[in-house]
Design a protein around this nucleic acid. Sequence first.
DNA 1: CTAATAGTGTCTATTAGACAGTATGTT
DNA 2: AACATACTGTCTAATAGACACTATTAG
Lengths: 273, 273
Amino acid sequence: MNYQSEEEFLAAYDPSKFKLLSVTTDILILSISSEEVDNYRKTDRLHMSVLLVKRHDYPFKDKWCLPGGFVQYDEDLEDAPKRILREETNLQDIYLEQLYTFGDVNRDPRMRIISTSYMALIDKSKLNTSLSSDASWFDITWLEEGSKVTINFDNGSSSFAIKMRKDLKDHTTDRYQFYIEHNDDLAFDHPKVILAGLERLRNKVNYTDIVFNMMPEYFTLGELQQVYEVILNKKLLDPAFRRIIEPKVIKTDKMRTGGGHRPSVLFKYRNKD
Amino acid sequence: MNYQSEEEFLAAYDPSKFKLLSVTTDILILSISSEEVDNYRKTDRLHMSVLLVKRHDYPFKDKWCLPGGFVQYDEDLEDAPKRILREETNLQDIYLEQLYTFGDVNRDPRMRIISTSYMALIDKSKLNTSLSSDASWFDITWLEEGSKVTINFDNGSSSFAIKMRKDLKDHTTDRYQFYIEHNDDLAFDHPKVILAGLERLRNKVNYTDIVFNMMPEYFTLGELQQVYEVILNKKLLDPAFRRIIEPKVIKTDKMRTGGGHRPSVLFKYRNKD
DNA sequence: CTAATAGTGTCTATTAGACAGTATGTT
DNA sequence: AACATACTGTCTAATAGACACTATTAG
């Protein structure tokens, strides 16, 4: 067929000749949680923390999953995670980054669903409403041994672990080839999303200011260093850390006192705008 | 409603209660082209090269676009670019990496379409069939001045340029915020895909072996260095380059002779498998 | 005083950048 | 011989890693 104008073509265009599908979005919401230690001298121990929601429906009834939902027909793709984030946490204007789009034919037993995952980084101190009853923050720790990755989840009342293998297989694919080897508790391919997000965060932390999205307005360099250590999953040396972080922060005249030790200066993020 | 079993739930599940949409894929196919220079002494000049296809239908009739197409209902997301790549170039088992998923409501005038873009890196010497008549390789060069980016396209018989602005706007988004400021020749949001791919390639080239997907089996270090220079858009110093590349390549006993100068040793990629 | 974290000075090792020099083909 | 590229040696600058040391609080 040959159309004489764009208007004519669009009028004749019939979307029903392709079999349509659904697009959803899953959001990996990360923040830093702090755990008080019994010893009055010690500082709080910081953890990486992820928001999970308990499913009430099939498929994956009673399993935990990332917050998510369908992308509406008249909604920009990136507005979907923003909307869901607002519904879930009552937060707006927070850091959001697209991670990866998963689209295996059988990833959802209901129908053909392609899902674009996002990572959101939040500062827990900005949370002003309580979570809905089916949502919960899980502290996570992870261990990498060669290509085997184990991620442990703990929300205080229950805990579980997932195991994945990460390999390149051949040189025709990039690094996002994850295989879930053990998972009894998370729905869908959400373990892959979590691992993709943790890897993205770990990579970006060294060449961006991304961490400051997880920090409160005022923080000590010890706290900031601990956040870097939690993300990178390794100890850093104090002098090196301070050298590198110095240009990114502003020293204030506030102090954090009350620990059984020398008080520390509070810093702010040096915003480049 | 309350279902007693997963089977019962799935049987009752009605996909039609959500308004469905289409998912397409666009592929940024990159390779290295070489241009002979009139001076018999000089080596070939290498360029980055992208495969574009001329559109014959509305929308964007007669504009150039990236090869792409609809993701089939019963096809894994990543199989769509593989299929299109095979249709377009007759190549299989080539490097393919997901770039980004674009999904603004109005990105396609026909209907709601979300598009996942991929980047493919190929070694032109492996091409065994001629391109279809509406496809053409364009050499590209690009210039960045602050947040302004200009990309020039040239396929020998025609050339054009697109201009984009790249900025962060605020700290709630990652680096993929591109605004097209001038574009008369490329369809859809394909300028964004191209810029995203060039940036991804430039970032990855320093910490992966991704370039070797674009190299023939045997190559000189001068050629390899020129490919790095084309990707990074800057000159590199010979001794530094050789130091860094040394562990990634294997010296062979073959030589490239025939230029009006000292012959150079041919190397192979040192595959870590 | 003690235990704990805060913060600094400085040496060393490693890596990146720069430049000058030598080597060897073709015409 | 001349030109263009191939390839190497070595100095210097910049950065990262390591460790030892001093400072300061609550209890």
